[in-house]
Each structure stands twice: as structure tokens, then as C-alpha cells.
Design a protein around this nucleic acid. Structure first.
Lengths: 146, 146
DNA sequence: AGAAATTTGTCCGTATGTATC
DNA sequence: AGATACATACGGACAAATTTC
């Protein structure tokens, strides 16, 4: 029987398990990850699910994949690199006079605010806030609720 | 006989076709894309392949997807034209609790604030504020901390 | 407010193409 | 050339969010 949980997607759980294994040395840097078949057996998941999990790790820089060979654990996980930036918060705010003036809209107009930080060697180097006018799609819920 | 070509994966071809449709207005900004079912019929591809294609577009910022609703074309494709950004103001501010927390410093610490706007086709597309800690030299004499 | 229909999200199992060893 | 492993693609099933009735 397949496993129909939903709270946390299987591929994310598996990605997390693998990430932890890399972090604590279970999979040494530079070593090949277990083969797809091995992971399929171990996690009782389909290949597609395993591949999705590995895709997450690849995206996040934990592993590198080579066609026909396998996926290697990277020696330098995301941290300690030159400068990593990550979004820490996204929300909607209303334009203060300052922002309203810059955008040329009315004060109180809803804006998208994205806050990201850039880290280098563990320390926060800069905080960047980017404001954008809402997309048309997102505007739906902001005006004229029925 | 599934799995015909390889030179260009199906999902990439489909993603390209959809992207072009958004670019030339076939799918207006803010409008919903055809449903996954409709696209499977149109491109004669499996749903997974369609989802892969849409995933590419989402990754690239062309579309946004909402569970139970659909995927709609974004009004801000990745740089529709020459986007110029210019710094409009630079000043020093004191860290509010929010910024202080992100930087890991005390509230009231002096920060450098740089505000820049990005324009495209005359309109202000985004306002970006970057905060940075002052250099150690500049710190002296700015606040009362000893 | 509740049920049904729609639509996207997740997962499975399988088959086949392509690259590497 | 064969074995191994990743990449692509198909089809089906059920879960969850949204909309519609």
C-alpha cells in the first residue's frame, strides 16, 4: 500500500534525512550518495520521489549530480561560502508616504515586501528589502472582497 | 512508444511554447494558464511532463501556481526590457527592533541605508533598500555606546 | 453551511533513452 | 558490449485547496 501522508511530502522528508546524513558525516564529502535503487529500498519510495529529494539537495547545493555516475556529497554545504543570501520573510505592507512617492501611487497602496539577508562567514552583512507592486493575480484578494 | 526524442526534452519544449505564448500576449499577464488537464490534451503529454514544464516556468518567474486554483502568468517576466536601477538616497538610520534582530545588534545601532529604484519602461518596478553595518571607523562617535 | 466538481500536489510503478564505467 | 545509473516519459491513484452549486 502506498503511503498517503500529506503533512510533509515524502520527498522533503527524504531530502531532509539525506541532508542530515551529509551534515553529520554519515555521507562523507566527496562520496557518492547511495544509489537510487538503494534509496528506493531504504525509504520504500518510488524512484521519482527519490529523484525529487535529490533534486532539492542539488538545488540547495548539498550534492552535485553527474549523468551516468551518481550524486556526490559536496564538501561545502551552504554555509561558509563566499556570501549566501536568503529570503527571510515575505509579506505585504501598505505604502508609507515615502514608498508611495517613489512608486507614484497613493499612500496605503498594498506592496509586496521581501526581506533577504546576505551572510558571509556567519555574520549578517546586509539586509535588503525589496518592494514591488502586487501582481495582478495577487491583487484579487486585496480589493473589493465580495 | 513513449520517450521519443532526447535532443530536447518534451517538458522543455512545452515550457518554451508556453513561455512564448505568455511573451506575445497569447496568455495575458494575470490570466490563468490552461489547466494541466487541458495541456495534457493539447500537447499529448502526461501530466507529470506538463507539471515539469510549468515547474520550469515557475522557477524562472514566468508563472505562479496556487493549489486548487491554477497557474497564472506573471506580469513581471524576468526583465522584459532594459531595467535600470539608480540609487535615489543614502543616509544613516538607527536600527529598529526588526533590523536589530536580523543583524544581531542592539536597537538603535546606526545603520547605513541605501535606497534604489528599478525602472523599466518608465515605471518604477521595485524599490530596494539595503542596510549595512557601518565600518568600525565610522561607528566611533555615532552612538553613545562605549 | 455543506456537498460536489475542479484543479493542483504527491506518490507509485513501469518503460525506455542516454551516459559512464 | 555489458552493467550500472541517471534522465525522461507515461499512466494511474489518492490527498488537499479552491471554487461552484
Amino acid at each position: 500500500m502506498p503511503t498517503p501522508h500529506y503533512g510533509q511530502p515524502r520527498y522533503r522528508v527524504i531530502a531532509d534525512a539525506l541532508r542530515e546524513r551529509i551534515e553529520n558525516g554519515g555521507i562523507p564529502a566527496g562520496a557518492l550518495l547511495p544509489t537510487e535503487s538503494a534509496l528506493t529500498a531504504e525509504f520504500r519510495a518510488a524512484r521519482g520521489t527519490i529523484r525529487q529529494a535529490i533534486g532539492i539537495l542539488r538545488e540547495a547545493g548539498w550534492v552535485s549530480t553527474e549523468h551516468g555516475r551518481g550524486s556526490y556529497a559536496n564538501p561545502r554545504p551552504p554555509e561558509g561560502g563566499p556570501a549566501e543570501s536568503s529570503v527571510v520573510r515575505q509579506r505585504q505592507i501598505t505604502a508609507d508616504p515615502d514608498l508611495a512617492d517613489l512608486f507614484g501611487v497613493a499612500v496605503g497602496t498594498t506592496l509586496d515586501e521581501s526581506t533577504s539577508i546576505t551572510r558571509a562567514e556567519g555574520a549578517v552583512r546586509s539586509v535588503t528589502r525589496t518592494y514591488q507592486l502586487l501582481s495582478a493575480a495577487a491583487q484579487r484578494g486585496t480589493i473589493g472582497g465580495d
